[in-house]
Nucleic acid binder design. Structure first.
Length: 272
DNA sequence: CACTCTCCCTGAAAGC
DNA sequence: TGCTTTCAGGGAGAGT
């Protein structure tokens, strides 16, 4: 569910807690992908949210105590905001209470996400951040950088797009949509992509992701932004989850690459 | 090192 | 209808 656009939408939705002071912290489940650090409660109590930002698919919540909360939503994670009427539901694992009565809830049925707390100056030093490639929406993303990284790769471009070490932020849904938009076959090997096609790919990447942000994120089941409203980019998917759908006189095909589903139109994505 | 596969967990949807 | 099976958007870590 959460790829770059959903994370971006989530971060924007968190502005109601900006500059608010944390009064209480509740950990209902500490066992996520990684255990929530034990010292998190002491560090968070009485600190104030000073900044909210995104690094790839990571949400960074900076505090005025020189610490930062790092949250990854995994596959099914969500951040919701609430107020005094909040009632805990199943899979609400971590809850922050603020002095102004606002509440931040981390909800994650599959528990593939995680929550970490580190010194703000050390955020960039975390190995999961350090290893990231250039952000998909960064102005620094250009064809030359990517060409250098993939020009010897025998891996199909679909899988390359999912590799956060190369471009950070793209997930399985948008990978299919981006490839369709750029008319590139998901089966094309990295080494077979000429620089002109990489340029096209980057252009489509920015187009698709920006459009998804504009629509407020998406999901297959029920991606919602922090206030509970439903993102609706899904209604504009061209190929994802559209096996058999007709595009002109051609059809969307589903294949599995590296255990992940890929949707594409073989006729239209035929650079080979 | 680079690549591929399995697995973490729960719930929705499909299959029977 | 209800029980069982399959599959899911991410990514680390093990294995090759």
């Amino acid at each position: 569910m959460p790829e770059l656009p959903e994370v971006e939408t989530t971060v924007k939705g968190l502005s109601v807690i900006l500059n608010q002071k944390i009064s209480n912290i509740k950990i209902h489940t500490s066992k996520l992908r990684f255990k929530i650090p034990n010292n998190i409660i002491n560090i968070l109590r009485n600190s104030k949210i000073s900044n909210l930002r995104r690094i790839a698919k990571f949400i960074i919540i900076d505090l005025d105590t020189n610490y930062s909360l790092i949250i990854h939503l995994g596959m099914s994670g969500r951040l919701k905001t609430g107020d005094i009427n909040y009632k805990r539901i199943k899979h609400d694992h971590f809850v922050l209470y603020f002095l102004n009565k606002k509440i931040l809830i981390y909800h994650d049925p599959r528990k593939f996400g995680f929550i970490d707390i580190v010194k703000t100056k050390d955020v960039q030093k975390q190995k999961y951040i350090l290893s990231l490639g250039v952000d998909a929406l960064s102005p620094d993303l250009n064809a030359q950088i990517i060409f250098e990284k993939i020009s010897k790769s025998e891996v199909p471009i679909k899988q390359i797009l999912l590799n956060q070490k190369i471009i950070a932020g793209i997930g399985n849904i948008y990978a299919s949509e981006i490839l369709f938009d750029s008319k590139i076959s998901p089966l094309t090997l990295g080494k077979d992509l000429e620089i002109s096609l990489i340029m096209k790919l980057i252009k489509s990447t920015k187009k698709i992701l920006n459009k998804a942000i504009k629509y407020g994120g998406s999901s297959i089941r029920d991606y919602r932004s922090t206030d509970g409203t439903l993102g609706n980019f899904q209604s504009s998917f061209k190929v994802y989850n559209k096996e058999g759908k007709k595009i002109g006189k051609d059809k969307v095909k589903k294949i599995v690459q590296y255990g992940r589903s890929t949707f594409y139109c073989p006729k239209l994505q035929n650079n080979k």
